[in-house]
């Protein structure tokens, strides 16, 4: 049982890593993340990179939906805007990766604010459907503005390079994706300790009360849309450099739903939850797919039954979590920790 957990100052109580034990575990985690690429093969690294992208995007969505309470069905579109910005800036203007990265975030944030502007007058379901409309409109633009986006064939992107080092393998990309992911996560974690982050939570809990307490609703909702889309844009930029191509097929409505599923399964409003959710929703379908591919060749008839199973499992995960564990994996993790913290006692 862990004891001696007392605080002598407010700042100690407000710290992100509150106890020595946590710090040790975090250190171990970072060591593990640093060692992982030397041990893992290209496929695992590819998955790790995609998971990193998913974590950044999911953390961004959790700021908007989980913390500020504005449901967005258009998150994939913002990832797409980031991706297309990066692709266009690289191929047309030849800008280096390190400049493209913040610029894709900024352009996504700009469009995020445009989409968020109607939130001045509407909220809840109506806003949710307005973001759905944004998703459809951006998807249409990706497909049909052929002269800029390359239409359904998309844009091929060269490998990223920083100071002359070319990041051409999954192994090298890992050292871009993961540090940016860590920065994004810690930025989000710290955001909730600032005035802005707390204002988001106040708006979610009761917007009218928040307004009475001096929070400019419109301004802060725009901040929420901008921050969330900035994360999405950065994720999109990374995704382009991992996949080396950007096409409209990467950003359908289903992808927006997948991001929402991540934060639901992980835990709404929790940064840790977004991480768990992103890992879970990236790895489970992949695991399911490789499980199903075992049946391939044995009987094609079975495959036609098993393939749609992925869609069913995806839906089941969302429904089961919402019905039985509405606070998601983050809550399960907390209970597990509590169990070991108090062990061998029950309460």
């Amino acid at each position: 049982m862990r004891i001696g957990d007392y605080k002598e100052s407010y700042s100690a109580d407000e710290a992100v890593f509150r106890t020595g034990t946590v710090r040790v575990w975090m250190l171990l985690l970072f060591v593990a993340m640093a060692v992982f690429p030397f041990w893992a093969g290209p496929y695992l690294l590819y998955m790790a990179n995609l998971t990193g992208v998913a974590i950044i995007a999911a953390v961004g969505l959790n700021i908007l939906t989980g913390a500020a309470g504005q449901i967005s069905l258009g998150h994939a579109a913002f990832v797409g805007i980031g991706a297309y910005t990066a692709a266009i800036l690289t191929t047309r203007l030849g800008l280096p990766f390190l400049i493209c990265l913040p610029l894709s975030g900024i352009s996504a944030a700009f469009f995020g604010m445009i989409v968020g502007a109607p939130s001045m007058r509407m909220k809840g379901l109506y806003l949710c459907i307005a973001t759905l409309a944004a998703q459809m409109i951006f998807e249409f633009i990706f497909v049909h503005w052929t002269s800029v986006t390359g239409g359904i064939r998309g844009i091929n992107v060269p490998t990223a390079s920083i100071f002359g080092i070319s990041f051409d393998t999954e192994f090298k990309m890992y050292f871009i994706t993961v540090p940016i992911m860590v920065i994004a996560v810690s930025a989000a974690r710290n955001l909730f300790r600032t005035r802005v982050g707390r204002a988001f939570i106040a708006i979610r809990d009761r917007d009218i009360s928040a307004e009475l307490m001096g929070i400019n609703l419109f301004q802060y909702k725009l901040y929420a849309f901008a921050t969330s889309s900035f994360f999405a844009g950065v994720a999109g930029c990374l995704q382009v450099y991992i996949l080396k191509i950007v096409t409209p097929e990467h950003f359908p409505l289903h992808e927006s739903v997948r991001y929402l599923a991540m934060i639901i399964v992980g835990g709404l409003g929790s940064v840790l939850g977004s991480i768990f959710g992103a890992i879970f929703m990236t790895c489970v379908p992949e695991a399911l797919q490789s499980l199903l591919s075992l049946f391939q060749g044995i009987d094609d008839k079975i495959m036609s039954y098993l393939y749609p199973l992925q869609t069913v499992v995806f839906g089941m995960l969302i429904v089961v979590f919402l019905v039985f564990e509405p606070h998601g994996l983050a809550e399960m993790w907390r209970r597990l920790k509590d169990y070991f913290r108090l062990w061998p006692f029950e309460h």
Partner: peptide
């Protein structure tokens, strides 16, 4: 029935999950 009184986002997501299940079942 289990979702009575839950926040909007949960209800929206439950029906989205449901649509995914129904679509997969129809394919099967």
């Amino acid at each position: 029935r289990h979702m009575l009184g839950q926040p909007t986002i949960s209800i929206v997501m439950v029906t989205i999950g449901l649509s995914s299940i129904l679509m997969g079942l129809a394919e099967m």
